[in-house]
Amino acid sequence: MSGLGLADVSCTIESGQFTAIVGKTGSGKSTMVKHINALLKPTSGTITVGDHQITPETDNKNLKPLRKKVGMVFQFPESQLFEDTVEKDIMFGPKNFGFTEAEAKAAAEKMIEVVGLGPEYLKKSPFDLSGGQMRRVAIAGVLASDPETIILDEPTAGLDPVGRKEIMDLFKAQQQKGKTIILITHNMDDVANYADKLMVMHDSRLVGLGTPQEIFNDHELLEKNYISLPQSAIFAEKLADKGFTFSKLPITISELTAEIKEQIHGD
């Protein structure tokens, strides 16, 4: 396998924002986010995270301060659990990053609630839990180190609709507490509902960057099939074919219903 995993990508992700990254399987989304906490290093170019710089020469040592700042929830993160109790597993990250035993314990107690499981889960073995509960424990384990930026690689894959919504709301709440969220997803409705900014990847390149509203209105990206539309926008297009006119393309259900109401009542 030769070729570049990433080619000539330049972008800035603002702190405190919810940025979604979309693109076909194999378009370089995962490769890109792995550069943000130096799991991969660039062959050329630099990545700046706060006051940390990652260059091709970056040493593999002393990456801990950076990795403490950038938490990462991988696809199917439940596969990273290994301790004999949920509590120990959540404490694992914080302790690696220099939390004291007591601080790590406090973080575990706090985070188990944040992910919607009660304190009674702390003493259980993670391997006795259901898949969805294991996922939450793994997420708690990442949040417990109190990262400033949280990278999510399809965190809701394989969950049922209720679980999906709860997990997405959880991350939205984290953003409201001041965290920067970077979400890799295939779900355009999640993009429309949660993201402030949208990045579109294709063939290892960044082909689109803007607000979801801007990107979903980008005809070139749509025609080239680099992205698809959220359900509300698809529905709005069908209405437009039947004579409806929209002032702007609605991408969420509330935008859609607002536009329809205006159309029906309006003059």
Binding site: K238, K242, I260
Partner: peptide
């Protein structure tokens, strides 16, 4: 979900297909 958001505009009673919803909205329009 769309129908629920339009509750105050029009009465919907239970499930509605996409075709049905579009037809209904066109009629209103």
């Amino acid at each position: 979900l769309v129908a629920a958001g339009l509750q105050d505009v029009i009465d919907f009673d239970g499930y509605i297909t996409e075709k049905g919803l579009i037809a209904k909205l066109c009629e209103l329009n």
